[in-house]
Structure formats: structure tokens, C-alpha cells
């Protein structure tokens, strides 16, 4: 009786865990099946070399580059905001701030990541863009700059949290050795702790990158819906994610080529984030072993 019960429970728990594997298989299957059909109609060479993306127009072009450049542009702006600020916060909390302060500020910082992204989209469109237009006169109402900056604020906690953990894990003896030589806190940070924690910091940046690439609502609201191959942050662009939203909101029929474009875009997005996530996973594994 007892054994049978234990056996059944173990199998049920196993099934729960199996769901996660099935999810991954499901994602890969769904994306690739639709993408394979898509690429039977659209040449993969055109897909990666054509500089126009106009699947919803009468004259159709299926070049992913404009969407990719839009995604890269907003992501780079976001990282340019989040990395220096997030890392500075991590160093400050780790080396400079009073102990109690660190404990009470961390949940507050995490609040930044808890705000729904649609709310950030509203901020970018209604608050940040009008503000930036006062400084940059030529800025359009939809632009990569404002969306990217707001996204950067959102991902600050991703950079801070993991970097701070990595800095915290640096053995105390290393730090004390540096202080013992008469170093200041700043010198200790940049000469000892940050290099020692570099792999953890790299992981935090990669994860923030992956998060920014996949972010949808901020760019869908504030960056525009005009796919164009440009690195000008002041004009409307379109990201991969925003394109998927645009099609989902419209009346595109299931089974058409237009419908399949969202899966072709989706698999491109998935491949990028998948690679980034795996890199960060392996760095993390390696670095955990080093400290154990």
C-alpha cells in the first residue's frame, strides 16, 4: 500500500517535471514547423539579405534585417543605460553602503522589474518622448531612443541583482588583502572584486541582453511599427516582437504566408535568446564549480 502510494506520487511528480521538457519541445516544434513551411515559399537567402520587410503590403519583401536592426538598436540603448547604472549600484551596495541599507533597498529596486511592461510603454510614449523632444527637436513621436532608455531602466535590477550576488561571493580574504595594502574602497572594487566576479557580471549582462531582445510591449507602444534598416535612434522603427504583436492584432488569416511570418520572426528571436541563455548557463555552471 505504502509502496504503491509512494510509487504513484513519484510518477506524478515526474510528470510535473516532464511538462517543462514538453514545453521546450512544443516551442521548438511549433516554431520550426511553421518556419519550415514559410521557408518553402520564401528563400532563406532573401530572408537574411533583403533589406526590406513588407509582408503586409502588396509588394512583399521578406528581409528580416530591418526588424533585426530595430531589435538590436533598442537593445543596445537599453544596455547602454542599464549596464553602467546597474553595475554601479551593485558595486556601491557591495562595497560602500551600510548593511541595513542594502537589505532594504534591494526589494525596492526589484520593484522596477515588477512593473508591468505595458506601463513602461505608456511612460516611454507619454512622458519620456515628449521630454526628449524638448532636448532633441527632430525626434519623432515614435522612436528607438525613448523605448530603449525606458527598457534600460526596467532591466537595471537584472544587472544589479546578479552582479551583486557575484561580487558578494568574492572571498573576504581577497578583499581584506587589498584593504591591508592601503587601498581605498574604489580601488579594491575595480582592482580586486570586480575582476574576481567578472564571470558573474558577464552572466548578468547576457541575461539582461536576452531580456531586452525579447521585450515586447515597450517597443510595441513607443518605438513604432515601421521596419527600417537604420541605426538612427530618433526615427520610428519596428522590432521583431513588435511585428508579432502588430500581426496578432490584425486580421491575418490562419494558414497564410502572412500568418507564418510571425513564426519566422519568432524563431529568429528564439534562436538569439536561446544562444544567449545557454552561454550564460554554462558560464554560471563553470563559475559555481570554481567557488565550491
Amino acid at each position: 500500500m505504502l509502496r504503491a502510494k509512494e510509487y504513484i506520487i513519484e510518477k506524478v511528480l515526474f510528470l510535473c517535471a516532464l511538462i517543462t521538457i514538453l514545453t521546450t519541445i512544443g516551442i521548438i516544434l511549433v516554431l520550426s514547423i511553421e518556419a519550415v513551411i514559410f521557408f518553402s515559399e520564401v528563400s532563406i537567402i532573401d530572408f537574411v539579405t533583403d533589406t526590406q520587410w513588407t509582408p503586409l503590403f502588396t509588394k512583399k519583401h521578406f528581409g528580416i534585417l530591418p526588424l533585426l536592426s530595430g531589435t538590436m538598436l533598442t537593445t543596445l540603448i537599453a544596455i547602454a543605460v542599464a549596464l553602467p547604472i546597474g553595475l554601479s549600484i551593485a558595486i556601491y551596495l557591495n562595497e560602500f553602503s551600510p548593511k541595513g541599507f542594502r537589505k532594504s533597498i534591494k526589494p525596492l529596486l526589484e520593484l522596477l522589474a515588477a512593473v508591468p511592461t505595458v506601463v513602461y510603454g505608456f511612460f516611454a510614449l507619454m512622458v519620456v518622448t515628449p521630454f526628449l523632444q524638448m532636448i532633441i527637436p527632430g525626434l519623432s513621436g515614435f522612436n528607438a531612443l525613448s523605448a530603449g532608455m525606458v527598457m534600460g531602466i526596467m532591466i537595471i535590477p537584472f544587472v544589479t541583482s546578479l552582479s551583486e550576488d557575484a561580487l558578494f561571493a568574492v572571498p573576504k580574504s581577497l578583499r581584506e588583502a587589498s584593504y591591508g595594502m592601503g587601498s581605498t574602497r574604489l580601488q579594491t572594487s575595480f582592482n580586486v572584486t570586480v575582476p574576481a566576479a567578472s564571470s558573474g557580471i558577464i552572466v548578468s549582462v547576457i541575461l539582461a541582453l536576452s531580456r531586452a531582445i525579447g521585450e515586447t510591449m515597450i517597443v510595441a507602444i513607443a518605438a513604432g511599427q515601421q521596419p527600417r534598416l537604420t541605426f538612427d535612434p530618433t526615427v520610428p522603427i519596428e522590432t521583431i516582437t513588435a511585428y508579432i504583436v502588430q500581426v496578432s492584432l490584425g486580421d491575418v488569416q490562419h494558414g497564410t504566408l502572412e500568418y507564418r511570418t510571425i513564426f519566422a520572426a519568432g524563431i529568429t528571436l528564439f534562436i538569439f535568446t536561446f544562444i544567449l541563455n545557454n552561454i550564460s548557463f554554462f558560464i554560471r555552471k563553470k563559475y559555481q564549480q570554481r567557488y565550491e
Binding site: A17, T20, V30, L31, E215, F263, T273, F274, N277
Partner: peptide, 22 residues
């Protein structure tokens, strides 16, 4: 299982939308 879960945590939410749709 381990690496898979770490990966799933990083999959953009919109991709889950495509999965749910199909």
C-alpha cells in the same frame, strides 16, 4: 531538466504566446 528550466526562464514571453496560439 536543469538546463531546460534555466532556458525556459529566459524564453521571451511572446514566444510562449506563439506556443499557446498553435
Amino acid at each position: 531538466l536543469e538546463i531546460n528550466i534555466s532556458n525556459l526562464a529566459g524564453v521571451p514571453s511572446i514566444i510562449y504566446g506563439l506556443l499557446g496560439l498553435e
